[in-house]
Amino acid sequence: MNSNDHLDDVPDAKVHGELIDGRTIEELADYVAAGRTPADPAIDSSPASRQAMANLARLTELTAAGLVRQAREEPSRDEAWISALLSSIRLELDEGRDIPISHPDPVLRLTLSESAVRGLIRRLGDTAGGIVVGRCSLDGDVSDPGALIRIEMTCAIRFGLPIEPTLEVVREHIRSGLARHTELAVGAIDITVDDVYPAKEEPR
């Protein structure tokens, strides 16, 4: 995978260095692998940790088999790929900007955090079929209702899939998901394919 060129630009509040609310991403991965038992209230009460665990759980489902195979064939490359992916997930956990949800009652101020929306986009991309999302960012004034925003992301594509048709399905999946869950005015969805993952040993 490419280096994390601009990941350092992501603002970082609750994610200090390697820690996500006091835990490493590896510790969170272990907790997910253990079925989140015994329950750890410190992890369960952290939004950043829960977002990370949601991404990790899905990542595991999507790529475990493929990654095992890839690791056997190209261990050093695989390590870099996983490391870059975990870095992307970790750095996307900062709460970010507030994205408004409208309500006619002026007493109510309703928002989604930018990190929640980034997590949603990652989920929509990962479940569209045929790709694993790498980095993801929102470009534009998300706090201004109606302002057009651009989504920029990278991904790995399953070997053998035609790139453009696959990405068109992904774009449509993301666009319809965001329309359902948010009030964002989504313009371009720019996706850069920067890796390929094995077609065989896909998860069931």
């Binding site: 928002t111 929640a116 997590g119």
Partner: peptide
């Protein structure tokens, strides 16, 4: 007078 602020921090599976 009051304001009620609600923020969604995570959308889970």
């Amino acid at each position: 007078p009051m304001a009620v602020n609600v923020a969604v921090r995570v959308i889970e599976d």
